[in-house]
Design a protein around this nucleic acid. Structure first.
Lengths: 128, 128
DNA sequence: AAAACATTTTGATATTTATCGAAATGTTTT
DNA sequence: AAAACATTTCGATAAATATCAAAATGTTTT
């Protein structure tokens, strides 16, 4: 769009950062990734939404710069991108560990992902 | 249940904070309010969108806790709510002055609102 | 009291977003 | 090479969002 071009990249990048963390499921993903890198099916099993939706959320977070992905066999590991060159993103990500730690769902999520291992979790998805 | 509502509210409040600042026009409003409190028509004249839309944006920012309103004659003055009891909001608002200061539009906006006075600006809206 | 003014609310619309299931892609295991 | 598996892409849909013009509300000026 013409308007977007006039406003420049900065504003768009800025709002994209916050749009990425304005969805509860994406926030839960970031909080889970604070514990350790996770594959798509591990996240899917916790969030209780479809795999394709999780994949989409991960793409949005990645596009905003919050996370990175790394191919690992048949899995794709997602992890927090703690070394972003985007200062706003870096600041926000640095504050995240202090946020939502008293939230029951966030804590429950972290408990779930630490309990079982990847193969068990992903295999159990089929039976749901 | 009450407990369920409480844990739901935290996440909701959290995402509402960031949803509020994931729109370019709302970000521009916050950056303008860094300079001084403003009425609706002053903001409208800068953003070049309809008054009702500005009013709606202001309501979203207010609902999220970023700004406050104060009746002032026939005007309503909006100002930044720097003393929020919401820690996340307080942190974000504290970082805002360091953000987007190299953005052309943000700087242009600030220039525009410092130039003319309220009565002139609001009166000129009719001719647009 | 009427007119002018600033703002909010309402109703409508176009766009974006979150979501799903199914199909496609690419890897590993058999 | 075929089957199994993890993930992504695609097509569809319902809900949310940004926006406007017009009507409603409340204040000030005349």
């Amino acid at each position: 769009m013409i308007i977007e071009m006039r406003k420049g990249k900065t504003m768009n990048e800025f709002t994209k950062t916050f749009k990425a963390i304005s969805d509860p499921n994406r926030v839960r993903i970031i909080k889970m990734l604070e514990a350790k890198p996770l594959c798509v099916c591990e996240i899917t099993s916790v969030l209780n939404i479809s795999t394709s939706t999780v994949s989409n959320h991960l793409n949005i977070l990645k596009d905003a710069g919050f996370i990175r992905d790394k191919k690992n066999g048949k899995w794709v590991d997602y992890s927090l991108n703690r070394s972003s060159d985007n200062p706003v993103l870096h600041q926000v990500l640095a504050m995240f560990p202090g946020w939502l730690n008293d939230n029951d769902i966030v804590n429950s999520d972290k408990g779930l992902i630490s309990e079982a291992d990847r193969i068990q979790i992903c295999a159990s998805l089929k039976s749901v």
